[in-house]
Design a protein around this nucleic acid. Sequence first.
DNA 1: GTTCGTTATTAACAAATGTGAACGATATTG
DNA 2: CAATATCGTTCACATTTGTTAATAACGAAC
Lengths: 186, 186
Amino acid sequence: MSDKLIQIIKAIGSFTDDEIDFFVSRLKEQFIPKGEHFLTEGQVSRHLGFIVSGIGMHYRNYEGVEIPTDFTIENEWLGYLNSFTNKTVSDMNIKVLEDTQLLTLSAEDFEKVYLFQPKFILLKDYYTELSFINHTRHTADLAMLDAKQRYYKFMKEKPHLVNRVPQYYIAAYLGIKPQSLSRIRK
Amino acid sequence: MSDKLIQIIKAIGSFTDDEIDFFVSRLKEQFIPKGEHFLTEGQVSRHLGFIVSGIGMHYRNYEGVEIPTDFTIENEWLGYLNSFTNKTVSDMNIKVLEDTQLLTLSAEDFEKVYLFQPKFILLKDYYTELSFINHTRHTADLAMLDAKQRYYKFMKEKPHLVNRVPQYYIAAYLGIKPQSLSRIRK
DNA sequence: GTTCGTTATTAACAAATGTGAACGATATTG
DNA sequence: CAATATCGTTCACATTTGTTAATAACGAAC
């Protein structure tokens, strides 16, 4: 179940088998049914989750409207690293769009992992940067492209999401109305 | 010159006077004339700069068009923390919109500061989170609001930028054409 | 102060996107 | 399986935003 995870960790930094065992042994399985939240705004994020199966959505609750900022699938980490790292109250929400199976790591266990081998901070920094870059790219797309171009780019870059994420969430992610997205698709 | 900086550092974490002296003594003065770059994409960011006077702009070069993602003024830090922290090649640019006076800290000196007192990592984490939150808010604005609402919000939240940043950059930041911004202002 | 390049404004028109409402399709529940 | 709610599509029309081009305002350099 954690094979793929191990492979990914090894790709990010050079860790010994012992170090990886130490990390993996701290993971716990968690199941989240479709539609339920992994993190709700106002909470402090105390866990990260590696997605074994399923799909998660980060979103900002904007005057009652859910604006997705990120979609996360199998073999990616689900979580809000800023809140997790700094123990700050989250201003974001994370919920799953399908029944989702996770391998979770608690903040306390990450501390232990980090004390055992400080190099593991690399993982956090790597994902923090990745997330930041993805966000600023998406922001530039919203500022620069029209609705049609945004949707084409979405289809091209995230084809695996087109049929897994409800259209009204894709529309909200792209900053357009569902009706306009329908028109573009036609 | 660094009074305000010291005050800000103290507000973020509890540091002793000795620790703050150690930090501040590593700062160097740097002047950047209007229009020049502090960081260019393709480079690794080796310095952070605390703005004593002037104004900086982070932007993404999008097929030749400059899309601002952030404006930074006096008493704020100028820099791309991801690239600085992880020594990765930057995909962002930073330039100044006015003659700008900085207090800079090199990556090597930050290492020294951090080894002297690991608590200083708090500063990095604090600013990383702040920057991320600002970005996702802006992204949600772009996805959710129309041009007029975006400009009103910009005026309300960043009145100090309205007359310091050229309109065509404000327009690009808000994802609208300069002509449309003129129309809205009228 | 004049000149020149840059930035901001204005207008008419074209194109894109939003709105509201109706209908169909699909999924969920009992 | 039927009933119900949710989601996706379509259309006509309103509104917003982009486009092109001309002009005005501004600022920097001489």
